[in-house]
Amino acid sequence: MSNVTAAWNDFSTHISYEALVGVHVSAHAPTDNLTREPSGFQQLSLGVSVLETLLSQGETLRATGKDDERDELMAHLHQLQARLDVMTAMLDQLTGDHTPLPYAIRLNEYGCLLAAGSGLLDHIDQAAGIELRLHFDGCRAVPLILPGRHDPAHPDFVAFDALPANLSEALGKLIFRQHRLQVAASRQRG
């Protein structure tokens, strides 16, 4: 069984983050350049920062649902968040927001399943590695860049190359938190 097929099996049996995310896919050399070159390490480190930003937003959202003595502090935090959102939007306009169109994805530590029929992987040579850039709403200007491989048996699946432990851990936390929020929302609906 190939590593890509094993990744598909692991992907299929674990919980996933499901969302509409801006996606850009490009080929990179078959060698593992993203984890060997210094710039590749910087990209993967930046990925941890992107995930931590998304995780911190989840904490803020979870804390706002409680009525306690922290309401005044939370109001100030919301004002600060709104100001930061405005500044981010201004920077996006100045730098030219080139965020790709959003696609439905399923993401976990093992890989990413892109929207069926999206055609995002059609131009990728199956022998080449893949650089997957995910632009989340909480941090649109800085993509999460993940190296991977295309699985010909599953045409819309990208199996991730070995990720650094801190990136894999942050990705796992984001997926688990999103899963908990989905469970809580379904319980509230009835």
Rank of each mutant, 00 (worst) to 15 (best):
Q43S: 15
L20H: 13
D85S: 05
L163Y: 12
L101R: 13
L174C: 13
L20A: 11
M87K: 03
P38F: 13
H179D: 10
F136M: 05
G96I: 03
L174S: 07
I124S: 05
G47N: 06
S56I: 12
E37D: 14
T99A: 02
G22H: 04
L84I: 14
A116E: 15
R149W: 07
M87I: 04
H78T: 12
L46P: 00
M1E: 15
D67T: 15
H98D: 15
V142A: 03
S56V: 12
E169P: 00
E52T: 12
L84A: 07
A75T: 08
L120P: 07
S12H: 13
H154M: 08
K66Y: 10
H135P: 00
L181Q: 07
L163T: 08
H14K: 06
M1G: 15
G138L: 06
G40V: 08
S2R: 11
V158S: 01
S168P: 00
H135S: 02
A170C: 10
A7G: 02
E109C: 10
G190C: 06
A7I: 14
R177K: 11
M87F: 04
A116G: 04
R189V: 12
E72A: 11
L107T: 13
G190N: 04
A104S: 07
A170F: 04
V4R: 04
D156L: 01
R149Q: 04
Q93V: 01
